[in-house]
C-alpha cells in the first residue's frame, strides 16, 4: 500500500492542515476521541505526540501536556494498545512525534514493526539527527514503509536542506524560527526564509510549523508552503475542554473557515 502521507500530497498540495496533539492528553483515553474529531472536522494529517519526561525541543505548554500525559499513565505500550484498531475509524495519515530515548528503549525495530502493524505512516524524532539515521537506522524505517520526517530551520544551510530533502520522504518540516515550540515570533520576520525555501523547489512537500496558532498565521505560512502544523495553540484549546468534540470543531473551523 502506498504510504498515506504520499496519498494525501498526491491529491492535496495547498493548505494542508496538520494538527499536533499529545497522546493521553488531556485524559488518558482522550487519544482516540481527539483523533476522531480532528479527522471529522477537517485536519488533513494528525501528529500524535509520544510523551517524554525530558522534551528538549518543546516550550512549556507542550512540556506540561507531556508531563500530564505521563501522569495519566501514558506510555508507548499503552499508546500502541490504544491504537490497535484505530484504522477502522481513521483514514488520515498519522505521524508519531517523540524523542529518541523511549524509541531506543522500546527497540527501534520493534517500534517500527508495531507502527506498521497499527497503521502509522510517519515518524518525527527531533533528536535523531540525519547522520545517525543514515548510518544506523534508515533500513529499519524503510523496511516498514515509515517516513522519517526531518526538520529544517532558518539556520539550516542550503546544502544541508538539499541533503535532508534527498533523504526525506513524506514531507519536510520547516521550523518557522529557531526556537522551542510555542514561542511567539512574528511571521513577518520569517518571510525571507520562507521565500528562500520556496525557491529551492524541493522534491518533498513542505509544511511549516512552530508559532502557527490561528487562521492568519496558518494562511501566511500556507502561502509559502504546502500547509502548516499547529501544536501549542491546539494543546491550549483542549487543555481544559469539557467537550472534546465541540472544542475540536470550534478550533478547526476557526482555522479553515
Amino acid at each position: 500500500m502506498q504510504n498515506r502521507i504520499d496519498q494525501l500530497f498526491a491529491v492535496k498540495r495547498h493548505n494542508v492542515l496538520n494538527i499536533y496533539c499529545t497522546a493521553g492528553f488531556p485524559e488518558l483515553n482522550d487519544t482516540l476521541p481527539v483523533m476522531t474529531a480532528l479527522q471529522q472536522y477537517g485536519a488533513d494529517l494528525i501528529e500524535l505526540g509520544m510523551p517524554f519526561s525530558d522534551p528538549l525541543a518543546d516550550g512549556p505548554v507542550i512540556q506540561d501536556s507531556s508531563t500530564k500525559a505521563l501522569q495519566n499513565g501514558m506510555s508507548l505500550h499503552k499508546l500502541f494498545e490504544q491504537l490497535t484498531s484505530f484504522r477502522d475509524r481513521i483514514q488520515v495519515p498519522v505521524i508519531l512525534m517523540g524523542y529518541f530515548n523511549p524509541v531506543l528503549t522500546y527497540g527501534v525495530e520493534a517500534f517500527c514493526a508495531k507502527c506498521a502493524e497499527v497503521g502509522i505512516d510517519g515518524i518525527i524524532v527531533p533528536d535523531l539527527p540525519m547522520a545517525e539515521y543514515e548510518n544506523e537506522y534508515r533500513p529499519v524505517f524503510e523496511k516498514y514503509n515509515l517516513h522519517l520526517i526531518f526538520l529544517v530551520t532558518p539556520e539550516t544551510s542550503e546544502e544541508r536542506i538539499r541533503k535532508i530533502d534527498s533523504l526525506s520522504k513524506g514531507f519536510i518540516y520547516a521550523v518557522s524560527s529557531s526556537s522551542t515550540t510555542g514561542k511567539d515570533k512574528d511571521m513577518k520576520d520569517q518571510q525571507a526564509y520562507f521565500e528562500r525555501l520556496k525557491q529551492l523547489q524541493l522534491k518533498n512537500p513542505v509544511l511549516i510549523g512552530f508559532g502557527i496558532k490561528d487562521k492568519a498565521t496558518f494562511e501566511a505560512a500556507s502561502a509559502y508552503a504546502n500547509g502548516a502544523i499547529i501544536g501549542t495553540a491546539f494543546i491550549r484549546a483542549i487543555e481544559h475542554s469539557k467537550n472534546i468534540d465541540e472544542t475540536v470543531k470550534t478550533f478547526i473551523s476557526g482555522i479553515t473557515q
Binding site: 517524554f52 506510555s75 523511549p102
Partner: peptide, 19 residues
C-alpha cells in the same frame, strides 16, 4: 543505555524510556 542531553550513554530510566 539511552539518550540523555543529546548523548548516548548510561542513564537511569523506566522500562518505558522515561528518565
Amino acid at each position: 543505555i539511552g539518550i540523555i542531553h543529546a548523548s548516548k550513554t548510561l542513564l537511569m530510566q523506566t522500562n518505558d524510556g522515561q528518565i
